[in-house]
Design a protein around this nucleic acid. Sequence first.
DNA 1: CTGAAAGCGCTAACAC
DNA 2: GTGTTAGCGCTTTCAG
Lengths: 349, 349
Amino acid sequence: MPRPDGAGERPQPRLVDVAERAGVSIATASRSLSGRDGVSAVVAAHVREVAATLGYVPNPHARTLAGGATSVAGLLVYEIGDPYFSEIASGVISAAAAQGWSVQISHTERDARAEAAQLRLMRAHRVGAIVVAGSGYVDPAMENDVARELEAYQHAGGRAVVIGRHHVRCDAVLPDNSAAAASVAAHVLGLGHRRLAVVAGPRHLNTVADRLRGIRSALDAAGLDPGELPVVYGPFTREGGQQATAQVLERHPSTTAVLALNDAMATGVLSVLRERGLAVPRDMSVTGFDDIQVAQDLAPALTTARLPMSEMGSTAFELALRPAAARPRRKPTDHALVVRDSTAPPAVR
Amino acid sequence: MPRPDGAGERPQPRLVDVAERAGVSIATASRSLSGRDGVSAVVAAHVREVAATLGYVPNPHARTLAGGATSVAGLLVYEIGDPYFSEIASGVISAAAAQGWSVQISHTERDARAEAAQLRLMRAHRVGAIVVAGSGYVDPAMENDVARELEAYQHAGGRAVVIGRHHVRCDAVLPDNSAAAASVAAHVLGLGHRRLAVVAGPRHLNTVADRLRGIRSALDAAGLDPGELPVVYGPFTREGGQQATAQVLERHPSTTAVLALNDAMATGVLSVLRERGLAVPRDMSVTGFDDIQVAQDLAPALTTARLPMSEMGSTAFELALRPAAARPRRKPTDHALVVRDSTAPPAVR
DNA sequence: CTGAAAGCGCTAACAC
DNA sequence: GTGTTAGCGCTTTCAG
């Protein structure tokens, strides 16, 4: 832990130093700097000026310990190296920085049990707000630990916001997975495809369930039997997409359109199709989900449903800064169908 | 700030609670938990057991304030949404988590002046270690502020590690940009190309200078005049790559190979070429740099120089945990030429 | 080997 | 309006 070591280097100025230099008491200095009232405007301004020239930055640990407001937020993601999450993180961090907050990131590397542990740690760290990105689980029991941590945190006055549908009583930013999925499916159906297959993420995730529901409703609306839709589950990664595609090709060789439930999986789908010499979109149409940055640069450019990840992150943080409402807020996000080159009418045969 | 509010919820146990339950003094409890000696093994074990059953987690603010060791690291990146940085961040966070550390991320959104400010903040936050990712500047003066902050931090006993910076006196993880670039250029030259052009990032970045140097040395080794190499500078982004490519095409229409100095720019290069109907690699060979995840999925799959980003992150963190050496350590990283489909011999004409 | 007590820098009552 | 003072939870001398 950095500490002045008696050498020439001046240690970081403390509130006392500012107060002394400004000729006021430490209490007045504190009040002036944290913008509370009870100080004459003139004095406050003077104190702030002195603080600035001294390069004073409050010690957040002292501040937190003394019961003041913290300005460190916790952000929980599955995997920060995944573009979906890094774009969300970017939104959170930018919004936080704009308010002078820092953000502490944990990633659980897709290990469900790690989530609760990380939240415990954040709670112990007394972060001022918590944002949980990453899908909730279909089975509420799987979220028990997480819910417990989050509730304890909120119960103690903390502000928590989740992104996605969770079985937790707190504010939430809700991407409209179902409607977005329906629009993708409707697009593919509209092109004339009748033999769709879905390359899905883990079946226990709400995100997956919701997106599937959207697809099925579109099928239903088109007069097709949603019950017959082939769905292959796998990890929400490129590799997951590859494995699932292999299965689709093997078990449902007449498929003309593969709907992947996120862009990472779609990337895997495309790679396998390319490898097997199937042309997209001529021999097979492919869609993704999320519209991560690279979706536009894949071969071919990916038709996908866009979710505003960065905005979801900043919205979540801003929600966390607002005091808790009587009942949990739900902020739906918009979505957009982005049609690119990976979808086309099915080949006639 | 979360605080017990007298309701049924049990507040987080404190050290006193553990001490009381274990029947020892708070000092003994502290010693036992932080694994210092001066406590009998039996007592220490007992205290630890009590702490575990109580679910005790030390309050890091109190600990830090009292002069104990912090276990929060600061990580500074340009833009967390950029795969290059998010992969580094992933490495840092994983390595940190393995040691029970949290990491606080700041991104400067490529604003050089923001760097020093963020470092100031980290210093004020008394983070236990700082990792700075992102290129340094060719002009040492541009890094003055950053260097000053970092030195003050280290002077006070903090541990700082930079990734890819030369002008700061602290431990560094140094990707071998020059050699990696040389290998890419040698590959392209080996294919028979003689009219290369470089799509470069900002000219004031070391990373750019080093990579350029590598390319020039390869040119030199091949008996070509490095002085005649067209270089167009731009932001290290997809858009930067697009703009630069437009210029290359206009001013150096006979170019047969474009070397982009990072994968994001290469993405832009590919998009412009596609738009203009130039086939890669038939009409133009293209290379990238870094080998971010998606490089393999671009159209065509990108030939690039791989840097082990995630490993660079974890190495940096581990370096930060080791006590400072007498003279700054330099950890070179390896690199690898990854040949994919975006390069081929030039068309005969 | 163990305990008592003095802060770390700040906020928030509570006095004036 | 402004100053005084008692902690926040922990580490760390200093006694025993």
